[in-house]
Design a protein around this nucleic acid. Structure first.
Length: 472
RNA sequence: GCGCCCGUAGCUCAGCUGGAUAGAGCGUUGCCCUCCGAAGGCAAAGGUCGGAUGUUCGAAUCAUCUCGGGCGCGCCA
């Protein structure tokens, strides 16, 4: 269905100010699975990570790193001040700076060391993030730096001027917000994007009172950059707290593309982390939080990925560390993987009846295309075949709706029907997959199993979840 | 006040973009292994799809309104 159309999928919005925490992994997994799905259905997908390395937060990181640097040189720095990052993960940055520069940075004024320290800190944080993403099996093609939009020739300013020439930017005043009262509200003339002309509720500011660009302004420039690179279909994956930002970004994409590009924004809701039903406590104040890595190390990436995808993206999600490693039916990951392993075990055992059954996946599948499928007449077999036949349409629907969770549910249902039919072999031996005195029937059943195993493996691969040969 | 998301069985959630008596897991009740395929399976009970109007031959699905919950609402990203 994609017909080679270029699609840009942007996901993971972790600031490069620390390791990824659990809150990030849902968007990461969702975006990754969606990208898989689109690539599988014929789109030319570019997976993109937008690095928010231009705001005040990375400045705070730089100051935190500088303190750790002085600490690494033997200074007693005391408590990390409010507003900076107190976490221990900043220490290696300080140590690296000390090893690289010795005491020389300390002798400089802030204007001298600041850019150096910030660049080093961001680079090291980004390395951590890449490792975290790899642990989750999440891939990106492009890491795009927000800062690069400003420093390599002011692309943000250029975009604003471009929009101004189109009549979409003007200097004006905004009414004060209706919601929570703002303490230091001052009515001032500012640079505004005419978002209301494209369906938004109010025009949006592009410059801060200190003269810098708003985040929105650089985001417009970024999306214009995507459009200029040839993307007419863009998908952004954001956290729930950014919901109010959708309209203005869609308005901006319309404006910068002259209506030619389309932006779909997928919001992933919050993940509540539980252990056996009890909320997992985290103390942000101490700079401690549950990192993505801790969770992956504890329950494995298959469980994290499947569980995150076994729910609509716009519904909140409870993630129970104890439940996802349970080996039972109420754990969907296990249940689906078990079905795949069961199918594989049939192939292993079938050699007792069909000694010349090829061991290779491909060879066996080729042989089974000759199987006498007309002998599959039982209601359970027919149901399974019907289910298998739905797979291509299910994939298309999931891809065009941008809803990977449909794949997860489908796999669960397929696994369920497979387990049910398997169990009927207990009471009705003629329904077993391997029939000792009837190699032809065995062949037909193996063909059915081949279909099931192939579809399970295919679907699991789209979700980025492993399809094991046997359960341990 | 405004915008967006959600509301389906006791609980957690699906519902294939409008189609037939609304589904699954958990929980409850009752079953299926002396051994060979029980990490599994079968069955029962349980729902005015938050509510109201409307569109339609037909609505959990679309529209309007309403109630309840979540998120957001210059110069944070």
């Amino acid at each position: 269905i994609g017909r080679g159309e270029a699609v840009n999928v942007e996901y993971v919005s972790a600031n490069p100010t620390g390791p990824m925490h659990v809150g990030h992994c849902r968007g990461a997994v969702f975006g990754d699975a969606l990208a898989n799905l689109l690539a599988y259905t014929g789109f030319k997908v570019t997976r993109e990570y937008y690095i928010n390395d231009a705001g005040a937060q990375v400045d705070a990181l730089a100051r935190s790193a500088f303190l750790r640097y002085r600490e690494a040189l033997g200074e007693n720095i005391g408590a990390i001040p409010e507003g900076l990052y107190p976490g221990n993960y900043v220490k290696p940055v300080g140590e690296a700076l000390a090893a690289e520069h010795g005491p020389s940075l300390k002798q400089m004024p802030e204007s001298g060391w600041f850019a150096i320290v910030r660049a080093k800190a961001v680079a090291m944080m980004l390395d951590d993030i890449r490792d975290d993403l790899a642990a989750l099996n999440v891939k990106h093609d492009v890491f795009f730096s927000e800062r690069s939009l400003i420093e390599n020739g002011d692309k943000v300013g250029a975009t604003i001027e471009w929009l101004r020439r189109q009549g979409h930017v003007y200097e004006g005043r905004l009414p004060p917000p209706k919601g929570a009262p703002i303490e230091d509200w001052e009515d001032r003339e500012q640079t505004l994007f005419r978002a209301t002309a494209f369906g938004d509720d109010v025009d949006r500011p592009l410059k801060k009172s200190d003269g810098g660009y708003t985040y929105f302004a650089s985001d417009i420039a970024y999306h214009k950059n995507k459009f200029d690179r040839g993307f007419h279909t863009m998908i952004d994956v954001w956290g729930a707290d950014h919901g109010g930002y959708i309209k203005r970004m869609q308005a901006a994409v319309k404006a910068i593309s002259g209506g030619k590009a389309d932006l779909d924004v997928k919001i992933v809701q919050l993940v509540k982390l539980l252990r056996a039903g009890e909320p997992v406590k985290m103390s942000k104040r101490a700079g401690e939080f549950v990192t993505l890595r801790e969770v992956v190390d504890e329950v494995g990436r298959d469980a994290v990925r499947f569980d995150m995808l076994y729910r609509k993206n716009d519904a909140p999600l409870d993630f129970d560390l104890a439940k996802v490693i349970e080996q039972s039916r109420d754990n969907p990951v296990f249940y689906v993987q078990y079905a795949h392993a069961r199918g594989q075990s049939i192939f292993r055992n079938a050699r007792e009846v069909l000694a010349d059954l090829p061991a290779g996946d491909r060879e066996r599948a080729a042989l089974l295309t000759q199987a006498p499928l007309e002998r599959l007449e039982d209601a359970g077999e027919l149901a399974l075949m019907r289910r298998l036949a739905l797979y291509p349409r299910l994939i298309e629907a999931a891809a065009s709706a941008h809803e990977p969770h449909r794949v997860a549910f489908y796999l669960y249902e397929l696994a369920s029907e497979f387990h049910a039919f398997w169990t009927r072999g207990n009471d009705a031996p003629h329904l077993r997959f391997i029939i000792r005195n009837d190699p032809n029937m065995t062949l037909a059943r193996l063909a059915l199993v081949q279909g099931i195993v192939s579809v399970l493996a295919s679907g699991l691969a789209l979700l980025g979840v492993g399809a094991p040969q046997e359960m341990r």
